[in-house]
């Protein structure tokens, strides 16, 4: 009986406890909807209203949104994978085999995490180029572009540190090739290399370091910078739209100005 459930829902939403949590209350008025955004610590990163043209698919292809989507999938699947994974040699590899053959849906979980990670790297690059080609990096959005570059680096590092965790041949040698590059840094190269791996070559210490970076430090950094990224979009006046006002019949635009001036 829909009528009854509706009534119960309404009662719940008007109860004192509910109202103490969600202050905006029930309703579809503009005010209620604005409050739904503004009274929520996460959603208030966004403004309560946006210009309609910002939503057009062609201007962003929703690439930033999709990047966020992959990141959310990665967090969920990543936390589930952590329940089965030990960052130690050779247990890490055995856990991979367990995920493949023992854990129910383990293979699916690992596949989803892997493909989402690849998608995130691809999407973050695509998003960057899309932002560039529509000129949305210019003032006043310069700093948000810089925050974006930081996010790009964090994404690459996340992917790179995750690559080692399965502890198979692919992982081991990819990280060996990559980490050897750090030795080429003038003066401090071998120090950086040692710091990164916790030794002179990729070993159990490196696995543990990469695990901590991959599961704790880098995701936290990403979350922080994503929050700033979104906040800045709001503070920079919303998404870039080609002209700040729509063309209206009779509006003075540049070409008429030039003609009249002549």
């Amino acid at each position: 009986m829909p009528g009854k459930t509706d009534k119960i829902l309404e009662q719940v939403e008007q109860s004192r406890v509910w109202r103490s949590i969600f202050r905006s209350g029930r309703g579809t008025s503009t005010l209620h909807r604005a409050l739904a955004i503004q009274q929520n610590v996460f959603l208030h990163l966004f403004s309560t209203k946006v210009r309609k043209r910002m939503l057009s698919v062609s201007s962003t292809w929703y690439l930033g949104t999709l990047t966020l989507g992959t990141f959310m999938i990665l967090i969920i699947t990543g936390v589930l994978l952590m329940l089965y994974y030990h960052p130690s040699v050779p247990q890490a590899y055995a856990d991979m085999k367990d995920l493949q053959f023992v854990v129910s849906s383990g293979l699916f979980l690992r596949n989803l995490h892997r493909w989402s990670a690849q998608a995130m790297v691809f999407l973050v690059f695509a998003h960057m180029f899309k932002v560039f080609y529509r000129g949305a990096y210019r003032a006043p959005r310069e700093f948000n572009w810089v925050i974006g570059v930081v996010l790009l680096l964090i994404t690459l590092l996340l992917s790179y540190t995750g690559y080692l965790l399965p502890w198979d041949q692919l992982a081991y040698w990819a990280i060996t090739v990559g980490s050897n590059l750090s030795k080429a840094v003038p003066l401090v190269g071998s120090k950086i290399h040692f710091l990164m791996l916790g030794g002179n070559q990729v070993n159990a210490n490196a696995l543990l370091r990469f695990y901590v970076l991959h599961c704790l430090i880098l995701p936290l950094a990403a979350l922080l910078f994503i929050a700033v990224h979104f906040w800045r979009i709001r503070k920079d006046g919303g998404l870039y739209v080609h002209q700040s006002e729509p063309k209206r019949a009779g509006a003075v635009d540049e070409s008429t100005l030039v003609k009249e001036a002549k």
């Binding site: 209203k49 946006v50 210009r51 309609k52």
Partner: peptide, 14 residues
């Protein structure tokens, strides 16, 4: 310029 509300228009699309 025509504006829409973040909730539900933007959140729905996201």
């Amino acid at each position: 310029e025509e504006q829409v509300q973040t909730y539900p228009e933007v959140l729905f699309r996201v």
